[in-house]
Design a protein around this nucleic acid. Sequence first.
DNA 1: AATTGGCACTCCAGTCATGCGAGTGCCAGA
DNA 2: TCTGGCACTCGCATGACTGGAGTGCCAATT
Lengths: 346, 346
Amino acid sequence: MVSERGLQVLRAIVEDYVDTREPVGSKAIVERHAFGVSAATIRNDMALLEDEDLIAAPHTSSGRVPTDKGYRVFVDHLADVRPLSSAQRTAISSFLGDPGDLDDVLARTVRALTQLTGQVAIVQYPSFARANVSHVELVQLGGGRMLVIVVTDTGRVSQRMAFVRDDFDDADLGRIRAELGTLLVGRSVRDGLQRIADRLESAAAMTAPHEAATAAIVRVVAEELDEFRQDRLVMAGSATLARREADFRGSIYPLLEAIEEQVTILRLMGEMVADENGLAASIGRENEPFGLAEASVVASDYDATGSRARVGVMGPTRMDYPSNLAAVRAVARYLTRMLEEDESSR
Amino acid sequence: MVSERGLQVLRAIVEDYVDTREPVGSKAIVERHAFGVSAATIRNDMALLEDEDLIAAPHTSSGRVPTDKGYRVFVDHLADVRPLSSAQRTAISSFLGDPGDLDDVLARTVRALTQLTGQVAIVQYPSFARANVSHVELVQLGGGRMLVIVVTDTGRVSQRMAFVRDDFDDADLGRIRAELGTLLVGRSVRDGLQRIADRLESAAAMTAPHEAATAAIVRVVAEELDEFRQDRLVMAGSATLARREADFRGSIYPLLEAIEEQVTILRLMGEMVADENGLAASIGRENEPFGLAEASVVASDYDATGSRARVGVMGPTRMDYPSNLAAVRAVARYLTRMLEEDESSR
DNA sequence: AATTGGCACTCCAGTCATGCGAGTGCCAGA
DNA sequence: TCTGGCACTCGCATGACTGGAGTGCCAATT
């Protein structure tokens, strides 16, 4: 069994290794940390830690390096998430100070977070599945093109083009608008999709005038609602990976690809399990199912108008977990506060 | 002076070096290419090429490598842009086959291009500065939030939130809509911005009812028009850079950063000078002002509803210029044709 | 004048031997 | 349970050596 001091040794190893990228030896530990025991004692502890697979030696008789499991124990039991410096706090508020619409706020958030941590920053959009449709607007552009705009009460807006054969006069357009209104406004995104499906199958509607065009428009609305249902991400800081390349045994290719694909990261972020503080970490090999076995993700939940979502950072397994945890927590809190203010000012 | 055969030697060096990444020596040239002369003769030619700074030796008595200037001569005089294989052609049309709105088509284009070349693909949006405003739409969302939608006759749509103090009744809203309509509809983006500026200074308007709110809305419209005026990009394939890392003496950091920033690449693409076929290349050190001295960009103009824009690829200086030129040309032609069809079907 | 074979020379890249130092593992003693 | 001591293991840097690829140049040939 690993002793209390053994865990402190693990902490020291993680901290020093993250600091220096050098495997850390027993002598270095007694020099840099005030353990009050000799190097030989530390060595005994290290042997225990190695038995538990918390640290490993890259080569026989070289310093030790934390394993993924070691990082996990460090994060779960040893990392004290220390609050940010005041400089960092002002950095956050200067980035996020001004209000704006959701896209705007999240775009600034993600930049603030990559700035703060020097890692790839990820901000998940709040889920809109439970949001309600508040407006459906049609704008006729001529030539059979119709702009279909859908707005939810959480402030999300989507616009998309529908191609209908002919243009309509105002009366017909009004009728279609009215139909969409009764069909969708006030309904949740989920309900709306269901009602659209019903509508498209309904025999009664089939015979309605302008049915072909109306159906085309309704289908476009369904696409837009479906997009609301899917979660979305914004990311920034992919260039920082080039700086950290030495920390990846393989290449940074999988990370860059995941960043471009988005969907992998979306799934990964979705599956992470947060602790009671809303913080979560997924370390190294734990991300193997996503092809990101050399990366770690640290994330924090935030609240946005009733639904939860996450902000996080992604980087090499050898990262400064306490700082990154502190940063995502601070940003998530700030974001929650901002979005609440926004809500209450409506 | 470099002889005709000397240029063929340069071509051989460029081709072999791009192929193998090994500096190429005189012996390798006579083996791989049927010059019908001896290695010693090639050596004499190579000495000339070196005097002209078209090739260089990484170390004394090692093979030769093309210089940036050498690539330039190769691209200008030696590269025959051979047509794509039929497999590649079908790949393009299967990617780009279906019609859709502009965002959609360009998104698929950029993916097709990165697929085709294995490089970072860049597609510039057509410039909308000369486009005309065709619709301005206001959607009241309640709580003093107003969605402002602007549409141009080139099919570009922008939506943005304005924060006005209070909500309006339909009559007032109608008045504001009408004012925006007479102010902007049918005007070019450029004119529209000017007219907005005039409107905001006009003494007459100052005293109008709901002036504060109207002014807020007009300012939001101005932001949207301004966004139209700025060129935009879509990119894909940044992950491919991780694969080509060995081709960058320094790191890929500047490239990744440029991709994230976008504006650098926008300027670079804008300043490239196309030949009579609409093709352009910017090679290595020529990109130094943009911090991309180890990268090359190959681009082709395309036509979109009256305005020109570019598609291109970015990669290491050591790239397969003929293939990439062929790919961007083919994609640009395809894109032009698609957008024209789209236009004529309106 | 252009081309060629020959030859001396350069320099890279790989291999091997060597020594040093950091670090470990283990043991006997406190 | 901790400690000092000691033998041992490797990694890594250094330096010497060598083979080979490639050049540059020159005199001879066409």
